[in-house]
């Protein structure tokens, strides 16, 4: 197990290098250092000298990948790529183009992101699994049919409509919760209700339908029939056998996203004014802040790889037969 994990970790390194190369290349074609300088220095009264000065100061006057002028290791290290990308492997994200420390920003924004994402994830999982179990229990009945229709209808609505509609009804017409905003600490709950609710409702359709098929697949297996023949109640069968065995396919889809919860949700956060990582990313895209986007991509990839590993580990908990060598 340990050896397996170590191997996975080692395998992650070339992937991260690849990720870095891709994003670096993409963003440098988009955004030359000149563009970045102009973006940061503003529109009015920008002179060529000011831009040149900015580039020197931020280290953007170096060559991209290979510095032919430098000696020794400097050929590779004295370049923009090395200075801006490679340092991320040791957790040094550097500064955003507006001069603010990225790591610090990420730390402060993680909290709000998680405050939204964790309840949405956990409650969402509970609600969808119970809904799917309900449908599976009443399989082939009108309740099941209409439940599935409801699911399909729910998943056919764009996420934008959920947010626009939810804000309009619950906050504007009924005035039940604040429309947007965030505050740290315990006061946050009233800001969280609506985005969490919308998050759950918008996710219910596709996942509940998917879980239902998984459950039905299990229900039709022999051992379930045996269990039922033993005289176990339907509920005991559902919870004791079906849910347990359906966990593997559910875990495959679910565990991988847990680490990504840190990244926040782009849409929800910007509509609800939550100062999390999602809105940080959107701001950075809009401001073409290369340094921030690069850092977020890097973190996203790391979290994804962690998620894959967590998935593997979680299998062993659910199904002791699975071993990694």
């Amino acid at each position: 197990m340990l050896a397996y994990l170590v191997r996975r970790l080692l395998y992650a390194i070339p992937i991260l290098i690849g990720v870095n190369l891709i994003t670096f290349a993409l963003f440098f074609i988009v955004n030359t250092p000149d563009d970045m300088a102009r973006m940061q220095l503003g529109v009015k009264r920008v002179t060529a000298e000011a831009i040149a000065k900015w580039k020197v100061e931020r280290g953007y006057d170096k060559p991209l990948f290979i510095n032919a002028q430098a000696a020794g290791a400097g050929v590779l290290t004295d370049t923009i790529f090395f200075a801006k990308s490679a340092r991320m492997f040791v957790g040094d994200f550097g500064r955003a183009e507006d001069g603010r420390d990225i790591a610090r920003e990420i730390r402060t924004r993680m909290g709000p992101s998680l405050a939204i994402a964790l309840p949405t994830f956990i409650l969402g999982l509970m609600v969808t699994i119970s809904f799917a179990l309900l449908l599976a229990f009443f399989r082939a009945s009108p309740l099941d049919f209409w439940g599935v229709v409801l699911c399909v209808a729910l998943m056919s609505i764009s996420g934008l409509f959920y947010i626009i509609g939810g804000q309009f009804l619950i906050s504007k017409l009924w005035r039940l919760v604040p429309i947007s905003g965030y505050s740290g600490g315990l006061d946050a709950w009233k800001f969280l209700i609506l985005p969490v609710l919308i998050g759950i409702v918008s996710g219910i359709g596709s996942s509940a339908r998917w879980y239902r098929t998984i459950f039905l697949e299990e229900i039709n297996k022999d051992y379930v029939r045996t269990a039922r023949a033993k005289g176990l109640s339907e509920l005991a069968v559902l919870f004791g056998h079906v849910l347990r065995n359906a966990m593997i396919p559910i875990l495959t889809g679910v565990v991988v996203v847990i680490p990504l919860l840190f990244m926040g949700s782009l849409l929800t956060e910007s509509f609800f004014g939550i100062p999390g990582l999602g809105s940080y990313t959107i701001d950075a895209i809009n401001a073409q802040d290369f340094a921030v986007v690069r850092a977020m991509v890097f973190i996203g990839s790391v979290l994804y790889i962690v998620g894959l590993m967590l998935t593997d580990i979680s299998y062993t908990f659910v199904d002791p037969r699975i071993r990694f060598e």
Binding site: I15, G18, I22, T23, L26, I29, V30, V297, Y304
Partner: peptide, 25 residues
Amino acid sequence: QYLYTTLSSIPGVLLIAAAVLMMQV
């Protein structure tokens, strides 16, 4: 496998944003 793991480990929206901006240029 390396190719698709690398690509899929980049957060989708960011990859799309970068690529769209590049194409725009």
